[in-house]
Design a protein around this nucleic acid. Structure first.
Lengths: 219, 219
DNA sequence: ATAAATACGTTGTATTTACAACATGAGGAG
DNA sequence: CTCCTCATGTTGTAAATACAACGTATTTAT
């Protein structure tokens, strides 16, 4: 597991913690390394999860199958990303999705209970890790709430206004650059690209916004 | 603040902690009680938040104003509910929404930093509170991810299939009761009630589902 | 420099949805 | 029982959206 220390160090979970300290915590937290071949399942939908996981090699897909058998890729996970934080639950932390290796991969498992329980021994940076985990969950939460706010609008125009409005507020300027191209923005808002493109132009013609490429101005 | 101990005890945050212990923690966590009159702002959109808050009296609205001045009620908060957990952030935990008292209300503020930092004194139940907060955030996260999964479907039918599929899986049965009436389900999925009702019947006619009132069966 | 790929806007059409309006049936209150 | 109210289903129409198809500009690769 030592060979992955440099990766763990760059992880959100261990932000601000040195390699020597991470190394010490690996035993303190009872970390386990598991390897998966391309195509293998890391988690099955419905399976009970008690760990917080970090991908240290390869790539994973999070995907969901519905009752009628339709499969749907939700997102992919790259090296250094944490997953499973949301499954930490007192009772049944049933995995909502399948997690599948799409390359030969390596994952480090940390028992969630051990992370969020302050360890009795003087594990110096344990508090830092607890905080990091909190920040990660909290930030993810905020992003989800925001996205949900946009997506809950009925029309494409309202979705766009909600998103652009929030981006302006976040960047604290009526002129700002968004981190998406048109297709990505359409995917993010779950609308059709061409319909969205059309609506953007109508909004421009209606005097609501101006834009060029990914730079937008609210009027 | 003592008079609210019985309310705090029933809160997610203090689940499993006795009143005497909560009382001790109030000083340990440097809790502050603030009162608001009907119509007063508890938080302003964009304001920096460093506290986790519990409503102990009255009622609040969480609402959002966009760049063009349109206001939008997102949800309301009742007595005993926690809010602000998602703003726990290392840097700028800018409030995404306005929080407004819609009755004369009382809110207890806990410094987030003090909650997620293990206190140096032997505060017996601090660990329990940290875990509770974690579970709360984690559960909220899961709910958001699920809802987002449904809402990101393009058509009403797909939204319904996604929701019903997940509910069946959660209740571990092809027949299950949902906690919504039609209007609530429509609001939850952000679609029109009558259009949804129509689609449900089409799905029944297509042999996908059966239902009566709030009991559904997947076929 | 040329060719290929990509991003973006535009248009027309078929489909889907929202919205309004009304029908039906189950409960509750008097 | 009768009158209400409320939840749900049904229908028609107008509006919005998805989808496909295409033109053009810009970028990337060779």
């Amino acid at each position: 597991m030592k060979k992955y220390l440099s990766i763990l160090k760059q992880t959100r979970l261990f932000s601000g913690v040195g390699e020597e300290d991470i190394s010490a915590m690996l035993t303190c937290l009872d970390a386990k390394l598991r390897r998966y071949q391309n195509g293998e399942y890391v988690l099955h939908q419905g399976e009970s999860v008690h760990d917080i996981m970090v991908l240290v090699e390869g790539a994973l897909h999070i995907q969901k199958d519905d009752y009628w058998g339709n499969s749907n890729i939700i997102r992919n996970i790259g090296v250094g990303e944490i997953f499973g934080e949301a499954y930490v639950a007192p009772d049944s932390g049933a995995a909502l999705n399948n997690v599948i290796a799409v390359e030969d991969s390596a994952v480090i498992f940390f028992e969630a209970q051990k992370i969020i329980t302050t360890c009795p021994s003087a594990c110096r940076f344990h508090t830092a890790v607890v905080q990091n985990l909190f920040f990660a969950l909290s930030e993810k939460n905020r992003r989800l709430v925001q996205k949900l706010g946009h997506m809950s609008k009925r029309s494409t125009r309202e979705k766009l206004m909600s998103y652009l409005s929030e981006e302006a507020s976040r960047q604290n300027s009526a002129t700002f650059v968004i981190p998406f191209n048109r297709q990505q923005l359409a995917d993010f808002l779950s609308v059709d690209r061409s319909a969205m493109s059309n609506e953007l132009c109508k909004m421009r013609d209606d005097g609501l916004i101006r834009f060029a490429k990914s730079e937008f101005t609210l009027l």
